[in-house]
């Protein structure tokens, strides 16, 4: 079972590597931010898998911290984009 979790983890890490293309190509800042969010979600999945594979329940708390903080970035981005729109002539 551990090998199964590990194999899945490797697959997800490869996913992160693949999605880097979107950060480089964009084309819009929103796309790049969505990629960052995808990194976060994938990272949480990896952490949960590793919590099982490494038998380290504390990793679930790390996931929790990631999860509650992930949305801050989006709100910050949206507020920035909004204020940019309103200040533009």
């Amino acid at each position: 079972m551990n090998s199964f979790y590990m194999a899945l983890t490797i697959f997800l890490v490869l996913n992160i590597a693949a999605s880097m293309v979107r950060v480089i190509r964009g084309p819009t800042p929103a796309d790049r931010l969505m990629t960052a969010q995808l990194f976060g979600t994938t990272g949480m999945a990896i952490l949960l898998l590793l919590a099982e594979a490494m038998e380290e329940p504390a990793l679930r708390n790390v996931t929790l911290v990631f999860a509650v903080l992930a949305v801050l970035l989006v709100i910050c981005f949206v507020q920035t984009a909004e204020s940019k729109e309103t200040t533009k002539p």
Partner: peptide, 20 residues
Amino acid sequence: IFFIAFGLGMALAWVRLAAP
């Protein structure tokens, strides 16, 4: 964005180093 992703990668690396 890359730096945020780097932070995530670092967290995973610390996990693998058994430092939760």
